[in-house]
Amino acid sequence: MGFKLLSKLLVYLTASIMAIASPLAFSVDSSGEYPTVSEIPVGEVRLYQIADGVWSHIATQSFDGAVYPSNGLIVRDGDELLLIDTAWGAKNTAALLAEIEKQIGLPVTRAVSTHFHDDRVGGVDVLRAAGVATYASPSTRRLAEVEGNEIPTHSLEGLSSSGDAVRFGPVELFYPGAAHSTDNLIVYVPSASVLYGGCAIYELSRTSAGNVADADLAEWPTSIERIQQHYPEAQFVIPGHGLPGGLDLLKHTTNVVKAHTNRSVVE
C-alpha cells in the first residue's frame, strides 16, 4: 500500500471513529477524501466538511520552486461564519470567499490569524475590503508590521502568557507558548472536538522541520505538551499544512522538532 493511500485511509478511519463516538456532533463529509496538494491548482481553494458547521479550507501556493498546501478553518456561528487564517495570499483568499459563498452561503463576518507569517495573514486586506472584521493577538499584529505583512485590524486580548485561553464565538483560542513562531495560536472547536494546530503542528508525513527561522526550538516541545494537557479530548487535529489526523500529530511534531534540534547540535 502506497504512503499517500495509507495517509488518506488514516484520515478516513479517524473521521469514521469520530462519527461513531459522537453521532450528534459529527456529520463528516462523505463526498470524498481530504484534498491534497496535487489536486488543488494554485489560485483555487477546496472546502472539506469535518463536522456539522465545521470545515477546513485548503489552498496551495508556490514557494521556492515548489507547491505547498495550506489549511485553515471555518466555523459556523449562528447565521454567520468565523474564518481562521487566510488562504495564503490575496488571490487565494478572494477564491476562498467565493467558494464559501458557493458552498455554504453564509457571510464571513470575523477572521482570526493564528500567527504573523504570510500563509496566515496574506489576504487580510481582501477580507477587510469584503467587510470582514480581522483579528490577531497584539504580538501577531506587531510582528506582521515588522515583517511588512498585512496586519489584522483588531487585537485579541488575554493571550499574552503561555497557557492563556479565551473564548471567541464558537471557538476557544489558546496560546501554548512559542513553537513554530513566538505568537502562534491554537484554535479548538469544543462542539466538535476539532483542534486546529496551525503551523505549530505537523502532518504525519512530514519528517523535516522546514521553516524554523522564527521558531523557538527549545520551547516548542513544552508548548505541545500544554496543548495535549489542555485538549486531551480532541479527536480531529488539523495541521497548518497537509493531512489531518488525531492527537498523534502532536507527538510526531515533537519528535521531528527534537530530531532537528539534535542534528543542529551535532553539526
Rank of each mutant, 00 (worst) to 15 (best):
Gly105Leu: 15
His57Ser: 12
Glu150Ala: 12
Phe63Ala: 10
Val11Cys: 08
Trp88Ala: 02
Gly123Phe: 01
Lys91Val: 14
Ile238Gln: 02
Thr254His: 13
Gly210Pro: 09
Ser193Leu: 11
Arg206Gly: 09
Val132Ile: 15
Ser193Gln: 09
Leu106Gly: 10
Val67Phe: 09
Leu73Gln: 01
Thr253Ala: 03
Gly32Met: 11
Pro244Arg: 04
Tyr188Ser: 04
Val45Tyr: 00
Val67Lys: 13
Lys91Ala: 13
Ser16Cys: 06
Tyr34Arg: 09
Glu99Leu: 14
Arg167Trp: 06
Glu99Lys: 13
Tyr135Val: 01
Thr253Val: 00
Leu173Pro: 04
Gly163Tyr: 13
Tyr34Val: 10
Gly169Pro: 04
His115Lys: 00
Val108Arg: 02
Ser27Phe: 14
Tyr12Gln: 11
Gly177Lys: 02
Lys102Ile: 15
Val75Glu: 02
Glu44Met: 10
Arg167Asn: 06
Ser30Gln: 06
Glu225Arg: 12
Asn92Gln: 12
Asp125Ala: 13
Val75Gly: 02
Ala178Thr: 06
Gly148Ser: 11
Glu101Lys: 07
Tyr202Ala: 13
Phe116Asp: 03
Ile201Lys: 00
Ala130Asn: 15
Ala66Cys: 12
Val257Trp: 02
Ala213Glu: 12
Leu204Met: 14
Ile151Ala: 14
Ala200His: 04
Val126Lys: 15
Trp220Gln: 00
Arg46Trp: 10
Val212Tyr: 08
Ile74Arg: 02
Val257Pro: 01
Leu204Ile: 13
Gly43Lys: 10
Glu157Lys: 07
Asp64Phe: 12
Gly123Lys: 03
Lys258Asn: 10
Val265Tyr: 15
Glu101Phe: 10
Ile104Leu: 12
Thr254Pro: 04
Trp55Pro: 01
Val166Lys: 11
His154Tyr: 05
Met18Pro: 05
Gly158Glu: 09
Thr60Val: 11
Val256Asp: 03
Gly122Met: 15
Leu127His: 02
Ala98Tyr: 06
Arg46Ala: 14
Val67Thr: 09
Ala259Arg: 08
Ile84Pro: 01
Pro138Lys: 14
Tyr202Lys: 08
Arg142Tyr: 14
Gly210Met: 10
Ala21Pro: 06
Asp118Arg: 11
Trp88Pro: 00
Leu97Met: 05
Leu96Thr: 02
Tyr135Phe: 08
Ala215Phe: 05
Val266Thr: 15
Gln61Arg: 08
Ala200Gln: 03
Val121Leu: 06
Thr222Tyr: 10
Ala178Leu: 06
Tyr231Ile: 06
Ala234Asn: 03
Tyr12Val: 09
Phe3Lys: 14
Ser16Gln: 12
Gly198Leu: 02
Val121Trp: 01
Ser56Glu: 12
Asn149His: 06
Gly53Asp: 13
Asp52Pro: 07
Val126Tyr: 13
Glu39Trp: 11
Ile238Ala: 01
Val124Ser: 12
Gly169Gln: 03
Ala15Tyr: 14
Ala213Lys: 09
Ser113Gln: 05
Lys4Gly: 04
Val124Lys: 03
His117Pro: 00
Lys258Ile: 14
Asp64Gly: 09
Gly148Tyr: 14
Asp77Ser: 08
Leu217Pro: 06
Asp29Tyr: 06
Glu39Thr: 06
Arg120Asn: 05
Thr109Pro: 10
Val37Asn: 07
Val121Met: 09
Gly197Gln: 01
Ala111Tyr: 09
Pro239Trp: 00
Tyr188Lys: 00
Thr93Arg: 00
Tyr175Met: 09
Glu157Cys: 12
Val54Gly: 02
Val187Gln: 00
Ser139Leu: 12
Asp119Ile: 01
Ala259Pro: 06
Glu219Val: 08
Thr140Ala: 04
Thr114Phe: 02
Phe168Trp: 08
Arg206Val: 11
Glu99Ile: 11
Leu24Asn: 08
Glu39Val: 07
Ala51Ser: 13
Leu96Glu: 01
Ser162Glu: 13
Leu97Thr: 04
His241Ala: 00
His241Gln: 01
Gly105Ser: 15
Leu143Thr: 04
His154Leu: 08
Asn92Cys: 04
Thr207Phe: 13
Ala19Leu: 11
Ala21Glu: 10
Gly198Tyr: 02
Ser160Tyr: 12
Thr86Gln: 02
Gln235Asp: 15
Ala259Tyr: 06
Phe236Thr: 06
Leu159Gln: 00
Lys91Trp: 14
Glu145Gly: 12
Gly131Val: 04
Ile238Lys: 02
Leu249Tyr: 04
His230Tyr: 07
Glu147Pro: 05
Val212Pro: 14
Val42Thr: 13
Thr114Leu: 00
Ala178Met: 10
Ser31Gln: 09
Asn211Asp: 09
Leu5Asn: 14
Met1Asp: 03
Thr153Pro: 04
Met1His: 03
Ala95Gln: 13
Lys258Ser: 13
Ile17Met: 05
Ser16Asn: 05
Val45Lys: 03
Gly123Met: 03
Thr140Glu: 03
Glu172Phe: 05
Gly53Met: 07
Gly148Ile: 04
Ile227Thr: 12
Ile151Trp: 10
Arg263Ile: 05
Glu150Ile: 05
Ser22Gln: 06
Asp79Arg: 12
Val54Met: 11
Gly197Glu: 01
Arg76Thr: 08
Asp248Glu: 12
His230Cys: 04
Ile151Gly: 05
Gly78Phe: 10
His117Leu: 00
Val171His: 01
Gly32Ser: 08
Ala144Leu: 13
Asp164Cys: 04
Glu101Asp: 13
Arg226Phe: 11
Ala15Ser: 10
Ile74His: 00
Ile151Asn: 05
Leu82Trp: 10
Ala98Ser: 14
Val37Trp: 09
Val237Lys: 00
Gly198His: 02
Phe26Ala: 07
